[in-house]
Nucleic acid binder design. Structure first.
Length: 262
DNA sequence: ATGGCGTTAGAGTAACGA
């Protein structure tokens, strides 16, 4: 089974890229998208359905938005935290950042973790609080489905080897110790990084800034992740970042990341 | 470098991303 995650920075602007890339992935079972940036009523559903794909969406105007594209129907589709954790967490669902479903007995969770903006921004504690709620959500899901694949744009580089530069890391959004600690606490539920099963060295990134020729100089960050529970981790046979679409005309600033298990 | 680029909303700039 193959699952991929890709922050496309607007599904409408990136429609051709997404379809072209999908055409080159005949064995892909699920593609999790983030930052679709469109209300559900304006989502280009037909472009996917006409090509035989199924798609489940959860979006809003202008910001955020997630979707899961599959070849066979996604089961037990669940949008946001509230269906699992109850109405007390409903405020966290105002921003559309979570969609999940079950495919071949595996629960696939698609997260678009808040960026946080800067350490002195009010968005920073929002990001940490969101990650705490996400941890509670995954803990609840684990009691129902033991096999979990949690993927998406986490907006966190967990280790120094996941960042091109070592300048001001501790004070930088996406690398600060509290963010890393919040992600580690979530992973401590029993999730492992698919990418690091196969690749130990640095210099592998999933996001490059549009500015200053970040991609051409490979000045990037590895912030898009596929985390899996123990059994799936043991069965994993490959995890790769595909930088190809990042080099296309008018690209997303993120590249897709794929995980395959038997 | 309060820099660099790109998207959305909506009509000139502003918010946001990471």
């Amino acid at each position: 089974m193959q699952v991929a995650t890709w922050n496309v920075n607007s599904v409408r602007s990136r429609l051709d890229h997404i379809l072209t890339w999908l055409d080159g992935q005949p064995h892909l079972d699920a593609l999790c998208l983030q930052e679709t940036k469109v209300e559900d009523g304006s989502f280009p559903l037909a472009a996917f359905r006409d090509r035989g794909y199924q798609i489940e969406i959860s979006g809003q105007k202008s910001y955020n938005g997630v979707a899961i594209i599959t070849r066979t129907p996604l089961e037990q589709v669940c949008r946001g935290f509230a269906p699992i954790l109850g109405e007390t967490v409903a405020p966290w669902d105002e921003q559309k950042r979570v969609i999940a479903g079950v495919l071949n007995g595996v629960r696939i969770v698609n997260f678009y973790v808040p960026n946080g903006s800067a350490l002195d921004s009010e968005k920073y504690p929002y990001k940490l609080g969101w990650l705490g709620t996400a941890r509670d959500y995954l803990a609840a899901l684990l009691t129902e489905t033991p096999d979990l694949c949690v993927c998406g744009d986490f907006n966190i580089a967990l280790e120094n080897r996941d960042i091109w530069t070592d300048r001001d890391r501790d004070r930088h959004i996406m690398a600060s110790p509290p963010e890393r600690e919040a992600l580690r606490s979530l992973l401590a539920l029993g999730l492992q990084d698919g990418f690091r099963k196969f690749t130990e060295d640095g210099g592998h990134f999933s996001w490059w800034d549009y500015r200053s020729g970040g991609f051409a100089r490979n000045r990037g960050w590895r912030i898009d992740h596929l985390y899996v529970t123990e059994k799936l981790y043991d069965r994993a046979i490959a995890c790769t970042i595909d930088p190809t679409p990042r080099g296309w005309d008018k690209p997303s600033d993120h590249a897709p990341v794929l995980l395959e298990w038997k």
